[in-house]
């Protein structure tokens, strides 16, 4: 299963090579052209020369850590890459560097902590990666400064049609994009698997500049806070309720005509959908929509619980429905063109 393979691949922001080659292999038989750029975005093109030109984007990178120093004992000092909640780090297995050297994130055992210490979250400065080595020399043989560190966790199906694993943000979006690229449309489609979204939407603007599309669709995973202790007003999205359409976030406000396109398509095809009920955080659409003369964009997300942690949860119906909705929207563009009348 592609989604499982993608989730289990390691690809912290700036180090997306594994994910990129996986996707390249998956899509090479479907693409008319497959290229990369200097920052590491992967471009998959189909229907060259057709109109209009639409860009589809999903980011390959995941949040993680980076090795910044060694202790004499061989423990590794790390810093965060992307928006990690440092409270979830402790006691998780990880892999370090290109050789995927296994390690664990350790901290002082609770027995050794004073009562007041126990109440405080463990800051990244108080956490170390332990490779099981005895000295700095031994550690340096296995890993080096600047090595990326990713969570190590495998994908499992749990409960009713749910998937538990790491990095569904945004490997689930990557899987959606890959599936969409396998279908045929009477459009020029460029699927871009972008890099470095988690460290500030770095790849997407560059990609949009290169592709120069007339419109863009971004596939994401977004917070689902439909959990105990959260009031319904703060749920943002709920799993199992269908793909989430973004109206606004910190980086982007969706043009009404793009929202209408998504809603009409979903309703016509009987696909459940929800609006993302939070106006903060950002996605690649923030950069894409601001490139060149402005590119009308739309963000469709798979609701995801415990996002940015080693164990995130999505619903497979949401995943399938996101693929259906994406294909439906492209079909609608194929038939009715882009919905931005009256503009030059």
């Amino acid at each position: 299963m592609l989604l499982k393979k993608l989730s289990e691949a390691y690809g912290v922001s700036g180090d997306e090579g594994n994910v990129r080659s996986l996707l390249r292999t998956e899509l090479q038989d479907y693409a008319e052209e497959l290229t990369t750029d200097s920052i590491g975005n992967l471009y998959v093109k189909k229907g060259l020369g057709k109109k209009p030109r639409v860009m589809l984007a999903a980011h390959m990178d995941e949040v993680g850590l980076m090795v910044v120093g060694f202790e004499k004992s061989g423990l590794l000092r790390v810093t965060a890459v992307g928006g990690l909640d440092h409270r979830v780090l402790v006691s998780k297995p990880v892999v370090v560097g290109n050789n995927h050297v296994p390690g664990v994130i350790g901290a002082k055992a609770i027995h050794l902590q004073k009562p007041q210490e126990r109440k405080k979250p463990l800051e990244i400065d108080n956490l170390y990666i332990d490779l099981g080595v005895q000295s700095q020399e031994e550690a340096e043989k296995l890993v080096k400064i600047g090595d990326y560190v990713a969570f190590r966790s495998s994908v499992n199906e749990i409960g009713e049609n749910c998937l538990l694993g790491k990095a569904f943000d945004d490997r689930a979006g990557c899987a959606v994009l890959a599936e969409v690229m396998k279908a045929d449309f009477d459009l020029e489609l460029t699927g871009v698997f972008t890099v470095q979204e988690e460290v500030g939407l770095r790849g997407a603007g560059v990609a949009a500049f290169n592709v120069h599309p007339e419109a863009a669709l971004v596939f994401e995973a977004t917070s689902a806070a439909d959990v105990a202790g959260t009031k319904e007003a703060g749920h943002v999205t709920q799993i199992g309720q269908g793909p989430a359409i973004t109206i606004m976030d910190s980086s982007f406000i969706t043009p009404q005509y793009m929202i209408d396109l998504a809603v009409k398509t979903a309703e016509k095809l009987g696909i459940p959908y929800q609006f993302r009920r939070l106006t903060t955080a950002g996605t690649d659409a923030g950069q894409i929509s601001q490139t060149h003369e402005g590119i009308p964009s739309l963000v469709i997300s798979i609701p995801c619980r415990y996002i940015h942690s080693p164990a995130t949860l999505i619903n497979l119906d949401d995943y399938q429905n996101t693929i259906r909705l994406a294909k439906g929207i492209l079909k609608a563009i194929e038939e009715g063109g882009l919905p931005c009348e009256g503009t030059a």
Partner: peptide
């Protein structure tokens, strides 16, 4: 520099 135009190493 990195994100200028179509990306500059």
């Amino acid at each position: 520099i990195q994100v200028s135009r179509g990306g500059i190493p």
